[in-house]
Simulated assay, not measured.
Amino acid sequence: MSKQWYKRIEVDMWMTKAHMATMGIRQQDQYRAQSRQYTANMEVKGDITFYAYSPEDLNKPFKERKRPVKVLDYKEIVGYNKGFWDYDDKKSSIYRQAEKSAEDYDPAEYAKLLRRLVIKTFSELKRDKKKKGHAGRWRGTMEESVVLGINAMFGENRGKPRPYFFLNLPGYNYRLALWRTNTIIGDRYVFTVPHPKTGELTTFRIKGRRFTPGKDFKVFNAETGEKVAEIDDRKLNIGGRMTIRFRGEEQFEDLNRSTVFRRTLIMFAIMVKFLRPINRKYRRLYRGLKKKKKYLKALNRAKKTQDTAKVDAVKLKYQDVQRECKMLKAIEVTNSELTLHFNPRRIRT
């Protein structure tokens, strides 16, 4: 439980790098010095601003409180691992991996299918006069699992993207899972939080609002059906600003003080800004993997004719299709993804 109760949190994703958190030659090195979580491939992409009630207002009934005010002495920054995301950078991890399969695929196209989202948040690198010591500290990680995303896409409503994410939060010993579930219309995500002492589970449902200009969501306690928060996408904001609003009534105070619940919503709001290319990737993966079925049928028909020229024509046709990544022999993941799925209880030799 946190001492702070934030009524509103704003996540601002930038279109340009001309911001205070990214200025200065030594900024990257300073962040890396403060936390090992800030790796060499991290790049600052946005910031997070917090709004809270004054101590005087917290003692008043909910309806008598004034509007929450901006917290001036604390801010966070958003970073993403560009080595796993920037497919057009020939020095990135995914492009180098795509080059290993250059005999089968065009590396420039194949790298697009290997991208994986890894985002992290850190307290802003700004030491205040009181020296609270929170400058540059790691505050949370969200990693996309392509393995489970593919698994859900083939197993549920086939062909529709089902991105799957793991969250790792400081001070919390358990890995949280957040994923998109099967719906006929709209978006719906779920995550379940285990209580670290009692093991009691609480499940939350994030439901997309339809017929709105941006990507707006409502957050519900899945067991009681109560709306506990909402996430508003300011569509007309340059770059993209997401506003998280928490219920302010007294019965929601404990939930609002939960750092796990709060940080899960922050990471979700950041992820939404990357959601369109993620969904596009899964659609391409599904079509490419399913294309093998057509290829094998055409190849078997050609072989039955015992005409070598027809067999070669089929192979040549689908070789060009595969080169463009419209057909995939298989999809591979990086070692960074594989380590997400290590079995901690495996028998070691």
Rank of each mutant, 00 (worst) to 15 (best):
Y174M: 12
R175D: 07
R209M: 10
K160F: 03
F166S: 03
L176Y: 00
P213N: 07
H195I: 06
K218H: 14
P213D: 08
T181R: 14
I206W: 06
R209F: 00
N157E: 13
K218L: 13
R209A: 01
Y174K: 14
L176D: 00
I206A: 01
F204P: 05
Y172N: 10
N168E: 09
K207W: 11
M153F: 01
V219E: 03
G159M: 07
P196Q: 12
P161E: 04
W179S: 14
D216I: 02
R162S: 02
Y172K: 09
D187P: 00
P170E: 06
Y172E: 09
M153V: 03
F154N: 04
M153K: 00
E200G: 07
Y189E: 00
V219L: 08
P213C: 07
Y189V: 00
R180G: 01
P163R: 05
T183C: 00
T181W: 12
F154R: 06
T183Y: 03
E156W: 01
Y164L: 10
F220T: 10
T224E: 05
V219W: 09
L178N: 05
N157A: 10
P194H: 09
E200N: 14
K207N: 15
G171D: 11
T183N: 06
T192A: 12
F166P: 04
R162N: 03
K215M: 05
K197W: 12
K207L: 15
N182K: 13
G199L: 14
R180N: 04
L178H: 07
T181G: 15
L176N: 00
G171W: 06
R210L: 14
Y189M: 04
F165S: 11
L167C: 03
L169W: 01
G186H: 15
Y164M: 03
G186D: 14
G208L: 09
T203S: 11
Y189P: 01
R210N: 02
F211Y: 07
F191N: 02
G225H: 02
I184T: 12
P161D: 02
N157S: 11
P196W: 08
N173D: 13
A177T: 11
L178P: 07
G199H: 11
R210V: 08
P161S: 03
F217S: 00
T224V: 11
V219K: 07
G155W: 12
P194R: 10
W179N: 15
P194S: 10
P170G: 08
I184W: 12
A177C: 04
I184R: 12
E226F: 07
Y174T: 13
P213W: 14
V193M: 13
F166K: 09
P170T: 08
P196F: 10
R210Y: 05
V219R: 04
N168Y: 02
G214F: 01
V193K: 14
H195N: 15
T224C: 02
A222L: 08
R162I: 01
D187Y: 14
Y174A: 12
G208E: 08
A222E: 13
Y172I: 09
F217I: 03
T192Q: 15
W179Q: 15
R209Y: 02
V193P: 03
I185Y: 06
